[in-house]
Design a protein around this nucleic acid. Structure first.
Lengths: 195, 195
DNA sequence: TATAAAAAATACCAATCGGTATATTTTTGC
DNA sequence: GCAAAAATATACCGATTGGTATTTTTTATA
């Protein structure tokens, strides 16, 4: 790993939470130099422009949550338990190892959908692959006789994602622990209803 | 209505959709002068600063959706039908009279929750009063024997909001009509399950 | 319709924006 | 350990940012 590669990683690691908290438009190059202790010349020596840092930052934040999900799912053997990881996923969303600022998919989707096609595409692909993963789990759960055979695959998957993401918004906005708890119970109920 | 009041209304009306599309940080004063055809002096003659325009813009956008919801609910007599307005609310969200840029509560929540306490408070209050409204409808529906007496009030209300808001994000991000349809069916199902 | 008051336009401000050319320092391979 | 190359820092750029002081125009009233 060359010096440049290490610096690049360092910059991404330090600035990813900033983009997630302040957004693309709200994050300035001087935010990046402050967070890294590097100078503008160094940032621009390793990245073509602000866009490239922002895209790399999204990938970094996204990887944190998707690899957490995958690792937690791998701990369980039943498909119901794998799906139920989404409840603990949601419950723990505001603690480490999750990035500061909430869900990067949600944050990026809201800011970029009308303003930044590249970031929008990243978020859109994230939703799509998340949906496919859930559908796959349900399908395998049906084959395994864990779930009812008539569970609507796509509807269940996309609605579960909507419930979780909307729940993250509500919980983070209001700061009410009770809201988080209640929505988490709804996530659990939605999954239990598949059996 | 004085000239100043009319100009103030004019500025709010013209700039509210811009704030909803570009966000607070992404909207500049020159965006406001372009949209209104007025000059900077005129904007600052009617508003103290950018914050004050943004807050008025949020109120304007929020009023559009809340008055739509209220008007539609008033058309129905049963509490179930009143609740089901949320499905058509969601279905029609990307057409007039809804403001450009998606749900202003969601947009403001995501951008402002870590960065702008005043806007955050506005969004938080909007969620809170929406939740109370839904709880009130369910309660009356229970008293009216439309709904089961054991429906969990707060959980149902806050989870319905989460599902709708998450659904708006997913539908707007991906542009997939099918996702919108599927999530809308989940909203309907959640309400039908109360009976 | 003349006039005072209010509103809008003009012209300006320092600070910051994203970005670059160049100089200096630090790695790297021999 | 020495050069060449790569990486970082410095110094700078024009454009734009949010905001203000002042002048001109428009509105309301007597």
């Amino acid at each position: 790993m060359s010096k440049a590669d290490r610096t690049r990683e360092f910059i991404i690691e330090k600035t990813a939470p900033i983009f997630n908290v302040k957004g693309y438009a709200g994050t300035s190059i001087s935010d990046l130099t402050e967070a890294t202790g590097l100078t503008k010349g160094s940032i621009y020596g390793n990245f073509e422009n602000k866009d490239e840092v922002a895209l790399a930052a999204f990938d970094c934040n996204y990887k944190k949550i998707s690899s957490y999900l995958k690792a937690e799912m791998d701990k369980h053997s039943s498909y119901k338990e794998k799906l139920l990881v989404h409840a603990s996923f949601y419950e723990n969303f505001f603690k480490a190892p999750f990035p500061d600022g909430g869900c990067p998919i949600l944050n990026t989707a809201i800011e970029a959908d009308d303003t930044h096609p590249q970031l929008r595409e990243r978020a859109s692909e994230a939703i799509s692959s998340w949906k496919n993963k859930i559908m796959e789990l349900i399908k395998k759960g049906i084959d395994n006789k864990e779930f009812r055979p008539d569970v609507p695959l796509e509807q269940t998957a996309i609605s579960l994602i909507a419930l979780i993401e909307g729940g993250i918004m509500v919980a983070k906005l209001t700061g009410k622990l009770n809201y988080r708890k209640l929505i988490m119970q709804s996530v659990e109920k939605a999954i239990n209803d598949l059996t």
